[in-house]
């Protein structure tokens, strides 16, 4: 790429970034540029621009560490691959327009510049998207493991009383895992009462309710009692609206209330001491 061009891009970096941000804000389904704090948007935009221009001078390859860093950041911010692609498109279009406007690119050399441009953008796109997808896969795998670990914990709180906090969406696969951990935990910890805390479950539909009822039934079969706690008002509303029958087992709105009942069931109570 010729010197004139590099100079022009570097001199007008602020303007390019500003225009680029304006364009990205108009992308459909875009949230990042609207909901993130101003300085974070600014910082990420600069990082992106830097990434886009590191290889602008020939022989300059992209710094791998910076690339991974950026990829992991935007994955965490929830940028989709489409959005990343669009970001690269917009950046290159704006730069091209700018060079045209400053008459560095004009009618006579436009062909030549197309080649230079393609040599600049294409490898960039490939490396960025590659880094992005590697990072994406890693994140998804980590989340999967984290979710499995989340559902794996039955906590012995007092003698005879254990709690299992459920967090996140419950699908059939996870429900099976929860059930196994719950029952094995109950038997191992000799829990006479278990509190299944659904405070962290965002949606309770008929399927989730079905899994919970089955778990409670299985707990009863191994010889313990299952209580459902953490029923938020909106969950109570959907349960009734869907006609789900939870009459057969004890439910409470909060973990504290449930714990109090569990203590009563096992003939104990908490007293304050001075």
């Amino acid at each position: 790429m010729n010197k004139q061009m590099i100079k022009c891009i570097n001199e007008n970096m602020d303007e390019i970034i500003e225009k680029w941000q304006a364009m990205m804000k108009n992308e459909k389904g875009e949230r990042f540029f609207h909901f993130m704090p101003e300085n974070l948007v600014e910082k990420t935009s600069r990082e992106f621009a830097e990434l886009m221009t590191t290889n602008i001078a020939e022989n300059n390859i992209i710094n791998a560490e910076k690339l991974t860093d950026f990829a992991s950041k935007v994955v965490r911010f929830g940028w989709s691959i489409k959005f990343v692609n669009k970001a690269i498109d917009n950046f290159s279009n704006i730069t091209f327009d700018l060079l045209e406007e400053k008459e560095i690119i004009h009618h006579d050399n436009v062909r030549l510049f197309h080649g230079t441009f393609a040599n600049w953008i294409s490898p960039l796109r490939e490396t960025i998207i590659e880094a992005y997808s590697v990072e994406w896969e890693r994140t998804v795998n980590l989340q999967k493991i984290a979710l499995q670990e989340l559902s794996a914990s039955l906590i012995p709180v007092f003698e005879k009383i254990s709690v299992m906090p459920l967090v996140g969406t419950i699908d059939t696969e996870r429900a099976k895992l929860i059930m196994e951990n719950l029952l094995e935990g109950v038997v191992k910890q000799r829990a006479e009462v278990v509190l299944l805390d659904i405070t962290g479950v965002p949606v309770v539909d008929t399927m989730v309710a079905h899994h919970i009822i089955q778990a409670a039934d299985a707990v009863r079969l191994v010889g313990s009692k299952c209580m459902l706690v953490g029923i938020r008002p909106e969950i109570a509303q959907t349960i009734v609206a869907l006609g789900i029958n939870l009459q057969d087992f004890t439910t409470t709105s909060t973990l504290q209330k449930g714990m109090k009942e569990a203590l009563e069931l096992t003939n104990r109570t908490i007293v304050e001491v001075k």
Partner: peptide, 18 residues
């Protein structure tokens, strides 16, 4: 009834036997 194992409880439930 005492000592129903977790695996047994799960299969009973899946059989539909409550």
């Amino acid at each position: 009834i005492t000592g129903i194992q977790p695996a047994v409880a799960i299969t009973l439930i899946e059989l539909g036997i409550r």
